[in-house]
Amino acid sequence: MTRSAAAPALDRRSLLGVALALVAVPAARASDGLPPDVEAAIREQVGAAAATEGGIMLRAPETAENGAFVPVTVNVHSAMAGDDRCRAIYLFATRNPTPGIASYRFGAGIARAEVSVRLRLAEGQTILAFAEMADGSVRRSAARVAVSTGGCLT
């Protein structure tokens, strides 16, 4: 009985959540509050288009024992067909000597907008992933990684 009483409230709440998620996607500028060299690298590789959060997932460990091998996967929600095609994924490190890590580009035979790599991180920092879609839109995701032993200079 209590269950049937609670169920409609839950439904309303989850509907509200969905509505908020749809409305409140912030059109964050690619460069919000970043060091100038990171901003410059993003502008050079991704361009100046405003990036939106959502539709992209950056999976990285919260803590990496060894900064020399940090496994990272970027997954973009994309049908990989028509306008809903992801053309490229870019990775940036906010506190590495070189902020631009890599660009990955997808050709016609790619089945999923996903790439898995291993990064070298000098110290604990935020890493950023950008996805460039076929319609010209850009998505962004960030992940904070703590690093026990830095990977760049040792």
Binding site: T98, G100, A102, L119
Partner: peptide
């Protein structure tokens, strides 16, 4: 893939 520094 175009790799700069930062790949293991």
């Amino acid at each position: 893939a175009d790799l700069r520094n930062g790949t293991s």
